[in-house]
């Protein structure tokens, strides 16, 4: 993958948006998947967060289901609060994995692509590689 060690990009998909994210740890990979999903449809350059939200993930979920649950929550929050994460950090406490999302107002961000409305299970990939983790997920737009 080369430097940087953590990042994201969009991949070609016929009708929808496909995100690829990577990072040295699963947590960083998932955080990049969040940022990549948002960057696929709004320009987050210079965005400032208005609040921080915490999203609790199920420790029993396999990595694939964890990324789906996290992105499902991002889409839900976008629809009901009008805010999207412009910063993401995944940690773990006694209760299990936890995502901390720095949320910015969508109205302040220029729209540059189609808005995600759901996370598809088709073609979902989360895998450990020698240099870290790789995730590919398709968002329905």
């Amino acid at each position: 993958m080369g430097a940087p060690r953590a990042g994201h990009r969009t991949l070609p998909h016929t009708a929808d948006t496909r995100i690829q994210a990577w990072g040295p740890t699963l947590e960083e990979c998932l955080a990049q998947a969040v940022l990549g999903s948002v960057a696929s449809f709004v320009d987050t350059t210079g965005a400032t967060a208005a609040e921080r939200r915490e999203v609790r993930l199920d420790p029993a979920d396999p990595p694939e289901d964890r990324v789906v649950a996290l992105l499902d929550e991002v889409i839900y929050l976008m629809d009901v609060t009008g805010r999207v994460p412009v910063g993401a950090e995944l940690t773990r406490d006694a209760a299990g994995p936890l995502a901390r999302l720095d949320m910015a107002d969508l109205a302040d961000l220029p729209q540059i692509g189609a808005v995600p409305k759901a996370v598809a299970l088709h073609g979902l990939r989360v895998e450990r590689r020698p240099d870290g983790w790789l995730c590919e997920v398709t968002l329905d737009v």
Binding site: T10, L11, P12, H13, T14, A15, D16, T17, G113, A114, V141
Partner: peptide
């Protein structure tokens, strides 16, 4: 029916 990705 689409033939090209949004990227393309």
């Amino acid at each position: 029916g689409r033939t090209q990705s949004r990227h393309q």
